[in-house]
């Protein structure tokens, strides 16, 4: 089975993309989409990417829920800062956070989570020291941000990927 589907998640995602673009679930489209998705996964296998292992699928949904709630909350927080502060952006600043996670997939997901949450942006990761350089819009207390990122995201991502 593994020769047919080297990357089952990629194949499933490509098939879903094909069906959504064509807006139909007729048998013909499903067969055509499956053939294309399997061919694309074979081409991907020629590149030999490192295979991510998702250890706890339940944690993925918990993480998605937490991130969704955090995005809505920080949207409101950043919107309030932009509209009500007299000189917005005075508290903005850089900070570094030590990270324990080493898995490249986990770091990639963490970078997308941090940057797509308004108010924080990922700048640089130092692989030798394991530190992360961030820019934060509302940098009043560094320990709050360290606790949020390490406790809420990094712990779950380490459960998923390591």
């Amino acid at each position: 089975m593994s020769w047919l589907l080297p990357y089952p998640l990629l194949t499933a995602a490509l098939l879903a993309l094909w069906l959504l673009l064509n807006q139909s679930v007729s048998p013909g489209q499903i067969i055509l989409g499956s053939v294309l998705a399997i061919l694309a996964a074979w081409m991907m296998a020629a590149l030999r990417p490192q295979k991510p292992r998702i250890r706890r699928p339940v944690a993925v949904f918990r993480l998605a829920g937490i991130v969704l709630v955090d995005i809505v909350r920080s949207n409101l927080a950043v919107g309030t800062i932009i509209l009500s502060a007299r000189k917005p952006g005075l508290n903005a600043g850089f900070m570094t956070i030590p990270l324990d996670m080493k898995s490249p997939q986990g770091l990639a997901v963490l970078s997308i989570i941090i940057t797509s949450t308004p108010g924080t942006i990922w700048l640089n990761y130092d692989a030798a020291k394991g530190t992360l350089l961030l820019h934060v819009l509302d940098l009043v207390d560094e320990t709050v941000w360290i606790r949020t990122i390490k406790g809420r995201y990094e712990r779950l991502l380490m459960e998923i990927f390591e």
Binding site: I71, N75, V78, G79, I82, L83, P88, F94, P118, H135
Partner: peptide, 28 residues
Amino acid sequence: ITLVGSLGLLRLGTFYARTHAPTLGATM
């Protein structure tokens, strides 16, 4: 919400602070 984010592009003072503004429109 998108308008608030784009207003942030005008109101925030430095470039690094401004990078936070477009994420409002691009997420919520």
